[in-house]
Design a protein around this nucleic acid. Structure first.
Lengths: 200, 200
DNA sequence: AGAATAATACCGACCGGTTGGTATGAATAA
DNA sequence: TTATTCATACCAACCGGTCGGTATTATTCT
């Protein structure tokens, strides 16, 4: 195996081990030694690939955001009416929420760190604004086409994001008997109805 | 000063110092020594009042939940139509979100711990269910009175909670130029419109 | 081609500092 | 006196990060 390939592999193993540990036990409770052990790498090896524990965390965050990017941009390329687009979005999000169990701890970890760590905050807020703007432009399109009432797109986009965040957290922390997929659909439907022009 | 009073006072000082430190720098980053110093108490004093750092955290959580209890139960005692009730709720929440800056880190800290610590989880989930049920019964009343469509109250209550959580987090982490009070009002209004029976 | 040199990937012992928690004794109200 | 409330001194464990060194692979020179 080439040197490059071997290096990349161990880097991936470290990232994987970190992901698993951070989401299971949290950032602070996870020691660099733990990650090293699970990845089968020594401490020296770890610090060869990452300058610090924080840098590893940010790398993880960016991987996560990139995956989100892919999912969301897949939506915007279509050219369908706003109503349909938002319904697609909900349909896409529903299964994600239903299986939110493993995702949530990591999600919370990111936000929690972002609230205090300037670097993490910067890495989080930029894509967040991008996603919100995507929603806003979809809504704006809906307003212009007359499907929606004359609402403020930015505000309503914030509402959509709020629904997403809130549902994700609830689904993750409260695996009740609730059907989270169905719940997501119903709620989105209701919000959409609130956006729509009343047919007279 | 009596012994009792003095003890209660230092206990309060410890709680206050902990609240300040936890929300500013996070649970793990805050040492017991930090709290002691700010509270003007020695380590011995601290461990006289609280058996552990975790116990202090849970005590803080319960204080916080109790304050929420008071606010929410103040709503339910009134006997107004569901629509008005929910609008009142939004009006009550709006300023809270607008000044969410200090609240959010603590909020995140609670949820983050709840996702991993069984005791914290139990202390969190019970009141959460209670609040959601309150919303559900308000919505149910709206359905029965004919103001609302025939929606599933539990699901819509979940949506309301999702909006609350999502808005709180966004307002706290993103002190943009946005007017969060206004935004909250608009979004609630929209969701409400989605709930309402279309007037024919 | 093959020797010499450099760069990369990794190891594991070690360090300074911090942490939550404890053992013990003093002050003071009851 | 006696129980409560707090102060002092201290500890064992742990943590992120460093460092000197080695083995392996690339690169350059002859």
């Amino acid at each position: 195996m080439t040197k490059q390939a071997r290096g990349d592999l161990t880097r991936q193993k470290i990232l994987q081990a970190a992901r698993s540990n951070f989401s299971r036990r949290g950032y602070d409770a996870t020691g660099v030694a733990d990650i090293c052990q699970q990845a089968g790498v020594s401490k020296g090896g770890f610090y060869h690939h990452f300058p610090s524990k924080q840098a590893l965390f940010i790398a993880l965050l960016q991987d996560w955001l990139h995956a989100l990017d892919v999912q969301i941009s897949a939506l915007t390329t279509q050219n369908t009416p706003a109503t349909v687009m938002l319904q697609n979005l909900a349909a896409l999000a529903a299964p994600l929420f239903a299986e939110a169990a493993g995702q949530v701890p990591m999600f919370l970890e990111f936000w929690n760190k972002a609230a205090r760590d300037t670097e993490v905050w910067a890495a989080t807020i930029e894509p967040y604004h991008r996603y919100r703007d995507v929603f806003a432009s979809i809504i704006q399109q809906g307003v212009e086409s007359g499907d929606f009432r004359a609402v403020a797109p930015q505000m309503m986009a914030t509402g959509l994001v709020a629904l997403g965040i809130g549902l994700l957290l609830q689904a993750g922390l409260d695996q009740d008997g609730m059907n989270w997929g169905e719940t997501t659909q119903q709620i989105t439907q209701t919000f959409l109805k609130g956006l729509q022009q009343e047919t007279e």
